[in-house]
């Protein structure tokens, strides 16, 4: 049996591969506080969200978590569960974001939304499933601050990439 693939499938596969590569690269970077990561693969997700729509973005982000964890050997481990929750949460929030009437969010807004949701989801799972110690709650504000900073940073990167892709520097409208 031959699985029929479309151009769109190929595009998603390429982009997912890129996201996975960034994800793995990032996981080798040392982190001062556990849980704080720049989340650069977010850039790919947001670009896809803006240019190809939510469905494609969801595919890529879930594939990134699955394949990334298999390659890194963390599949079904706590890291994987946290990462999956983060990805699912950010996709849910991004979905709500794309439905915002009016001008809607730009890349920075999406990126911040995704980063905050990712962190909040991940933290909730960490707290309730793995380390239900009240001391962990003290870390939450720091983590959320980091999420905001990295969200804005990767949003600006996304904006720059999109402007580069468009070639004319105009802002990109939703879908």
């Amino acid at each position: 049996m031959i699985i029929q693939t479309t151009d769109n499938d190929h595009r998603i596969a390429w982009l997912a591969a890129l996201a996975i590569a960034i994800h793995i690269m990032e996981s080798s970077l040392p982190s001062p506080v556990p849980g704080i990561k720049p989340g650069l693969s977010n850039v790919i997700t947001i670009i896809v969200l803006i240019r190809l729509g939510w469905n494609a973005a969801a595919w890529i982000s879930i594939m990134r978590v699955l394949c990334g964890s298999i390659i890194l050997g963390t599949f079904l481990s706590p890291t994987f569960i946290m990462s999956l929750t983060g990805a699912v949460c950010s996709m849910i929030v991004l979905y709500a974001g794309t439905r915002l009437p009016g001008t809607g969010f730009g890349p920075v807004g999406y990126s911040v939304l995704a980063a905050l949701a990712h962190m909040a989801g991940q933290f909730t799972v960490a707290y309730y499933l793995f380390i239900p110690h009240p001391a962990l709650l003290h870390l939450f504000p720091v983590l959320i601050t980091a999420a905001l900073i990295f969200g804005v940073t990767s949003g600006i990167i996304t904006l720059a990439v999109i402007n580069g892709l468009n070639g004319d520097g105009n802002e990109c409208s939703t879908q």
Binding site: L100, G102, G106, V108, G109, L148, G155, L159
Partner: peptide, 17 residues
């Protein structure tokens, strides 16, 4: 950056403290 972008960042900054 769009207005909702700014609004989101400002609101998040307000909630952080």
């Amino acid at each position: 950056m769009t207005r909702p972008d700014w609004l989101l960042i400002i609101i998040t900054l307000a909630i952080l403290p």
